[in-house]
Design a protein around this nucleic acid. Structure first.
Lengths: 278, 278
DNA sequence: CCAATAGTGTCTGTGAGACAGTATAAG
DNA sequence: CTTATACTGTCTCACAGACACTATTGG
């Protein structure tokens, strides 16, 4: 027979936390940045690419596969966001990185060891800040998102040595929204379901770029409008028209008197992000 | 010393799932619908209100407090979404409800019993479908969202008998985005952190209304444009201009030859949602 | 007739897309 | 001078906001 408690304190004193089946959680991080290729011609600007951080697993499961940086949540002491920060600090030695909860992935067999639910976070960073990477198993991969056809998205990841090909099917969940269910078409290219996390993250970023100033989290303090436009273009995966871009951006940036020169063409002014107090 | 495994199978056979500290998860559901007040005047249309489902807790913790319907995840057999569906079925006896993952709430002390991480879901439903509510402890509360000032949002919940006042502070997380950290200003009006879940859900809905057809998940099969407009207005919390509304909506609906009459004024045509195949 | 809602026509200003043009560095 | 990018001026078209107007019912 069930015991009748009179107060919450009394109830809690008796409570057995293991009464329900428990599980483990992880925070996984999609760290996105923008890389610059070497220019092929002294006049040309360097081409930009999105790039994400992957880590090579040195243990089972998925030994020797690449995966997103992540770590188990310690339920006694930290929130998922704190866990994500801890992992980022461990892998990149950086704090103060833009971090946003992306989605909670909870397929029953996404981890072969046991039931693990993962809350994924997007992290954005200016690549210039990443000087001393701590983990020798971590490495940036350039991202190329190929044209979507027949509801299939192809993503190519390249770190200079190794090339990974992801293919994910997008299935519309319902008529009324733009929500998709993702299905991996190439198992085990990355560990776990991290290919789905990557696609979800890239799409979130692509959307947010249009109605927030989120890109500035990936920019250095001073930048040219050309550089800024390239970052928008690489995220949106399409060319923008200069005058339109400058119209939209002009209220968000402040022109400085510094210039970027030595590029084999007309120099450009450096701008910085316009904060509220400006 | 650590044992060296040669294959993933061998590794998994030895693996102890309890090696890391574990925790419990719940799926909590913000079920949103639109209710119609009785009209005060034979001519007037009935006024619409957003309304959400709350459940009275009959046990500790938070005994006798209202909370969102929710339930513990059974890690062995279900995903969080399946868990949410199971809870909805239990509370409303309905399946086939629009369900969308909202956010994962993971404050360390959000549940006094132990560490519980909750993934919240938004559910939308046409209130006419809710005929036989199973749980006698469940009840709809009308929602009034008061004008935001000094970063504080006030929400009034009313079920006809009882009125609950929520107050939540919104703190901008960073300059670059529209993300806020929510802080409860009135503890223990609702159980757990469910006041924050409600605000997050209402804001998500308010946003999504502008760029998806998500409202149609709250509509009956046939509706007048006036009714549809009222639902938009109650979600957006502002009046819309008729011609503008009809311009936007006209590609999303199909006019039928049915009419709604007996209202003390000009009758209106009934419309239905336009599906892809139409 | 009146009150209330249904439904339409049209003006106007804003803002995005598009194209064309000028400016200026390095080699 | 050439090449490549920086930066600006302006036209047009689409569309949202706004207002005014007509239509139709029950009482």
């Amino acid at each position: 027979m069930k015991k009748q408690y009179q107060s919450e304190e009394e109830f809690l004193k008796d409570y057995d936390p293991k009464a329900f089946d428990q599980l483990s959680m992880t925070a996984d991080i999609l760290l996105i940045s923008v890389s610059s290729e070497e220019q092929s011609n002294y006049r040309k600007n360097s081409k930009k690419r999105m790039s994400i951080l992957l880590v090579k697993r040195d243990d089972f499961p998925y030994k020797n596969k690449w995966c997103l940086p992540g770590g188990f949540l310690d339920p006694k002491i930290e929130t998922l966001e704190e866990c994500a920060k801890r992992v980022l600090k461990r892998e990149t030695n950086l704090s103060n990185i833009y971090l946003e909860q992306l989605y909670t992935f909870d397929g029953i067999h996404r981890d072969p060891r046991m039931r693990v639910v993962s809350t994924a976070y997007i992290a954005l960073v200016d690549k210039n800040r990443l000087t001393d990477m701590i983990n020798p198993n971590a490495c940036f991969f350039d991202v190329v998102l190929l044209e979507e056809k027949d509801q299939v998205v192809n993503i190519v990841l390249d770190n200079g040595t190794e090339t990974l090909h992801l293919a994910i099917k997008k299935i519309l969940r319902e008529q009324t929204t733009d929500r998709y269910r993702f299905e991996s078409l190439k198992q085990n290219v990355l560990a776990f379901d991290h290919d789905l996390v990557i696609l979800a993250g890239l799409e979130r970023l692509k959307n947010k770029v249009n109605y927030t100033d989120i890109v500035f989290n990936m920019m250095p303090e001073y930048f040219t409008l050309g550089e800024l436009q390239q970052v928008y273009e690489v995220i949106l995966n399409k060319k923008l028209l200069d005058p339109a871009f400058r119209r939209i951006i002009k209220d968000k940036v402040v022109k400085t008197d510094k210039m970027k020169t030595g590029e084999g063409h007309r120099p450009s002014y450096l701008f910085r992000y316009k904060k509220k107090e400006d």
